[in-house]
Design a protein around this nucleic acid. Structure first.
Lengths: 205, 205
DNA sequence: TACTCTGACGTCAGCAACTGACATCAGTAG
DNA sequence: CTACTGATGTCAGTTGCTGACGTCAGAGTA
């Protein structure tokens, strides 16, 4: 099916060490292609497996479910963010710690073209949006945990984490949809400025 | 199965107008019970239907999927919030508009015991957490839309909505987990105060 | 060399979440 | 009395996903 000759039937060729591309990578690429071509719901796990030249069962050995293919990078991202937080000096304010971390990871992890492609797929399907939301929520929870370990008290930790992740999301969106030349750091900085203008008064109702 | 005699096999009895409780209500109650008793994943749609005295097919006619039973109130809640926003005077700041709306709906819609039960079920299952997150995200998006219709510019609208919904979530959590006597309005007010202390500086990195 | 062990993969059977198409049947409008 | 409607049952089928088990190549080991 695919134009690449990688998907030929004669796998199991002389593979010393890591010779042939592994099933994982082939599956990930096949899934991305198919989700783009015909939409997430319209592609079956079997089709992905076939394009990758493996069995359906093998697909589910590498990915917990159909959606997970699109969220591979998440743990990696989270690990980097937490590590960055750990390195930040103690006297910085909680939110600033988080935002600094968000700031740092940008150029490190993302391929813009891939991100755009991925975002298009996700935005077309509620089930995928749900998963993305959960990943962000998980990220927020562990950031809050990291903050707590630094001695930040409880409501502040959660709020700072939540705020930081919100900045990340909105900044990311902007980075993807804006002009290609715009810098990651710039997106984050502007978003923070806008956020500050929006802070609520105490008077409610 | 159930102790209530509602679930006897002889439905289809003389029902003039609305005599017998409708399938919708029975299904919702049955699902709640079973999710509580043995967990979400451990209960099948068939079991729910049986306890409600109908067919599995009927379950899926009333609820888009197994999870949806737990998220019935969402649209209603959203409608009320949007209506409240529409009534708020124009000169109030965006976030304050949103938070005032959140403030108002509390006593209106929630039954505390039911909320606690529901929260317990949801927090035990990632798939349900995903759905909840999506509902909040949807709410946030429509609040942002409502704000835009009042003339609020774009980044502010989204940020204000996001912030308001975050306050709602954290306040709600507190309302559920805190002392039963604590007022909804009080939870929201305190959360707002904490949020203000957390606002980021412009200096990042 | 032979022997075993392991890790990646295939095969197969099966469950459960849905869905579409169609039948049925009570009550209602005409 | 008949035709229609709306809520439900029946049934067959697709798809996501899982467990159990077989297989086979390569690496290590005697």
């Amino acid at each position: 099916m695919s134009a690449t000759d990688i998907n030929s039937k004669d796998r199991r060729l002389p593979l010393m060490g890591r010779w042939l591309p592994d099933a994982h990578g082939r599956l990930a690429r096949a899934a991305l292609e198919l989700y783009s071509e015909r939409g997430f719901e319209q592609t079956t796990a079997l089709e992905i497996a076939e394009r990758a030249g493996v069995t359906e069962r093998t697909f589910f050995r590498y990915f917990a479910d159909k959606r997970e293919v699109l969220f591979q990078g998440s743990q990696e991202l989270q690990r980097i963010i937490l590590a960055t937080i750990a390195e930040t000096p103690e006297d910085v304010r909680p939110v600033d710690v988080v935002i600094a971390a968000m700031n740092k990871v940008g150029g490190l992890v993302f391929d813009r073209a891939h991100s755009i492609r991925r975002a298009a797929i996700i935005s077309a399907n509620p089930a995928l949006q749900e998963r993305e939301l959960l990943k962000f929520s998980t990220l927020s929870a562990s950031v809050a945990g990291a903050l707590r370990e630094r001695g930040v008290a409880e409501p502040s930790a959660t709020l700072a984490a939540e705020t930081g992740v919100t900045v990340f999301k909105i900044g990311f969106e902007r980075w993807i949809t804006g002009t290609p030349s715009e810098d990651w750091a710039e997106c984050i900085r502007d978003t923070v400025c806008q956020l500050r203008e929006v802070t609520p008064s105490i008077i409610v109702g």
